[in-house]
Design a protein around this nucleic acid. Sequence first.
DNA 1: TGTACAACCGCACATTTGTGTGGTTTTATT
DNA 2: AATAAAACCACACAAATGTGCGGTTGTACA
Lengths: 212, 212
Amino acid sequence: MINVAIVEDNDTIREGLAALINGTAGYSCVGAFGDCESFLAKLPSLKVDVSLMDIGLPGMNGIDGVTKAKQIKPNLNILMLTIYEESQVVFKALCAGACGYLVKKTPPLRLLESIKDAFEGGSPMSSQIARQVITVFQQNTGFKDDNNESDLSEREREVLVSLAEGNNYNEIANRLFISVDTVRHHIRNIYKKLHVHSQSEAVAKAIRKGLI
Amino acid sequence: MINVAIVEDNDTIREGLAALINGTAGYSCVGAFGDCESFLAKLPSLKVDVSLMDIGLPGMNGIDGVTKAKQIKPNLNILMLTIYEESQVVFKALCAGACGYLVKKTPPLRLLESIKDAFEGGSPMSSQIARQVITVFQQNTGFKDDNNESDLSEREREVLVSLAEGNNYNEIANRLFISVDTVRHHIRNIYKKLHVHSQSEAVAKAIRKGLI
DNA sequence: TGTACAACCGCACATTTGTGTGGTTTTATT
DNA sequence: AATAAAACCACACAAATGTGCGGTTGTACA
């Protein structure tokens, strides 16, 4: 039995969803709310596996709702409800902690399937959205897109890491037991290799490339 | 016309795929290779949109193949070919730069669909794999617990982005049509909000928290 | 109507940075 | 034995930065 909660301000849609869920064996609608606030108030005592959350809501919007809800129940599976596949918005919802989304016009059978999918640890989403996610994901991981010629030496990496931690040349020198001028020298080479000309740019590029 | 390359050591499967692709209007198989090495050798001069890459290959494996291939052609769309949905392996491939995957037993029509999908900027994958990706993704993004207290104003974000792009105070001032002293002022506030005391540290923290 | 906050501007001054120049030593590769 | 590359050191100086202080304006909210 999958316990589902609904947060959707449109009465027709909300009641339609509730009816669909309650009318299907193995699914139960344990709550239907017209706004985030009342949902969040009930959430602590709600026995719920999957939440369907509209994005455009009166009062607190669905994205912020996800953030709050995950603070209360970190393991809650939240599927966003959207009218169109507005990728930017869905993407934000995923960042906030949603695990997938449903387009409202999805046929009932497919909809139930997606809920089950989310319940079982899947993330129903279109391949277009998936690509956006993995693009960001790849940037945050070891994979670098334009890694032409950008291998820093071990020492240079140490210096760069230290910089990113907020140390100045003097502090880096002390930490690595070398002179300030050597630090300077390394940073010079880092700039050359990364084609940059300031600390900030170097740190930004290095992090985004996964070098540090 | 979508140009597809195949890297697959099993002759039967490779030729079957090539025949399917060449036999379908709008698709063209521009290369079929039995190993990564020969594929990578040809790649620089290959006009290819999407590559199908087996994971278990003699010599260099498919994962390393992806890494190398993306170094040569960063914008190449690579779909992994797997027998089962071995999530760990697929996951690694995505880290390496693949944009999705295909299970070998996928019916021909669905297979062609996935190739088109990848070509058009999608990432065909099951919702199970998608969940794994977004889980890691969410951990690497702002979603984490400690994102209290770190909301920069819009202007502050602009300044910080500009910094990360390598601009100095003067350039930022010109770009945003404000005075250098105002830039200085914003940066002061950024430091306060992020609890840092240098450009590098601010940029590093902001990127890691997903603020910029 | 008062308080709060974002966004804006200014000046002074010590400190830090970026970049020019010049070097030595050690280790790995050819 | 020669070459390259990493790691080390030094000096000089203009430019940029960080931080102290001071301020105005406009919008939002209680």
